[in-house]
């Protein structure tokens, strides 16, 4: 929901998006997800429900995942925001992305950036999650294509590989 009406008051913000500061005038109601998609033109963050349920807009703000649709752009003044594009360029989740492809843990791919951001956080917090813990952690992200098993296995596989266990 980008761009308020011409009369709408706007506020200056500087958001560090994937390491690069970006300054913009935004209306108070602009969500972070819409800011990223429409102002920063980073369209890997997807909008699925706009009320914080589906997880497709999951991004990192100052190191923790948030719902891009429940966070306002004005709240992120001065914050470090990382999107799927940034995480990809960083290279930190390449093994996770490779495992998603290898295990076919995505079909349409609309939910995938959100799942990757959520799974990245899980693996940082817990290098040895059980399948149940993976399922539990990812329950804030909806996928309508895969039935979830492949996603769980891709995360499990990545964790095992990071621990140096062959899989």
């Amino acid at each position: 929901m980008s761009g308020g009406n011409a009369m709408e008051k706007t506020y200056p913000v500087t958001v560090i998006v994937n390491g690069t500061p970006m300054t913009a005038l935004v209306p108070a109601r602009l969500t972070l997800a819409d800011f990223l998609r429409n102002e920063a033109e980073l369209t890997g963050t997807h909008v699925g429900c706009e009320h914080g349920v589906c997880g497709a807009c999951t991004v990192r703000v100052d190191g923790r995942t948030v719902r891009g649709c429940l966070t306002l752009a004005v709240q992120c003044d001065g914050a470090e925001v990382e999107t799927i594009e940034g995480a990809t360029e960083d290279g930190r989740i390449k093994d996770l992305q490779d495992a998603f492809i290898e295990r076919n843990a995505l079909q349409c791919g609309f939910c995938t950036p959100g799942f990757l951001m959520a799974a990245d956080e899980l693996l940082n917090d817990n290098p040895s999650p059980t399948r149940e813990e993976i399922r539990e952690h990812l329950s804030g992200n909806y996928c309508r294509c895969t039935g979830y098993q492949a996603i769980v296995e891709a995360v499990e596989m990545t964790a095992a590989r990071r621990r140096g266990e062959a899989q």
Binding site: R37, L42, T43, G44, T45, H46, V47, T83, I84, E85, T88, Q97, F100, I101, E102, N104, L106, C108, G109, F110, T112, P113, L116
Partner: peptide, 19 residues
């Protein structure tokens, strides 16, 4: 075999209509 179109989707570089 791997899906050749999967890589762009895991990198957030898909092309959905709203993009």
């Amino acid at each position: 075999v791997e899906r050749p179109n999967a890589r762009r989707l895991v990198q957030g570089r898909g092309a959905f209509v709203d993009d």
